[in-house]
Amino acid sequence: MITIDSLTKAYGRTIAIQDISFEVKRGEVLGFLGPNGAGKTTTMKIITSFMPPTSGVVTVMGYDTVKESIKARRCIGYLPENTPLYHDMRTTSFLRFVAKAKGIKRSKISSCMERVIFECGLEEVRSAVIRTLSKGYKQRLGLAQALISDPPVLVLDEPTMGLDPKQIYEIRQLIKDLASSRTIILSSHILPEVSQVCDKVAIINKGRIVAIDSTSSLQRGLQDNARIVLKVKDNLDETMQIINSVEGVLSVSSSNSCVLNVETIKDIDLRPELARRVVEAGIDLYEISRKDMSLEEVFMELVTEEITPDA
């Protein structure tokens, strides 16, 4: 429902993003990752029509964000970075303003307000002045203003920044609940969060997309070798010898007395073969599992890879 086609944005001579293209389908949650200054926020500002691109086209629900900006904006709920809010207003008066500004019908305003107040857990602070709210409540109010018109597309710039673990969990649950019928783009620095919430990940570095794929295939696809971890009772040296004799095994190492890390070639899954050989030798096998790279490792690999040729 969001298509981005060869998007470029330059601020004067500085190029913030260069030739970005991707697509987010209905019901998908795309995690947008990248180091600070990589162009995440710029991309989000263009998607939400806050500013036009230097070149390239973005469409949201089929509407061009430059030519049919007002229609495109009607489809989007946007939570900007750092959650800007009108600090002099009260929670309900702010939400009423947002509802009116987004063109919600007068008769539906109260029900929409009650819905987001409930969804985002704002009952306790409904008549508080926004200035006095805690960081967590401000973040929830920011989310509430994005959700109030029940938009099909959500763009969330670091939605869990500055929250405590419990609040992060709650917001994450909320996003998961919302995901079924909506298209969501969210940026985050917290990588485990992205792998939990998102179906798809786009990694951006220095204004270019360096990888875009589903979270799991990204974690698998980037490894040169497959990694298998074995846990045995004892006889470590004997086990190592047995494993080394299996075809396809590249190296074996042990991190402590009963855990072995095995590197194998990527194309075949050696787990059944390894298990059989170890058990046939009469060694007690406790555990055998494949270990994928964590999203952190994938991220670091991609981002550092990009940096090296320039240096």
Partner: peptide, 14 residues
């Protein structure tokens, strides 16, 4: 200064 311009300019208002 408060950044709320990002809200205002992304609401469906000209």
């Amino acid at each position: 200064a408060q950044g709320t311009i990002e809200l205002l300019f992304t609401y469906p208002l000209s």
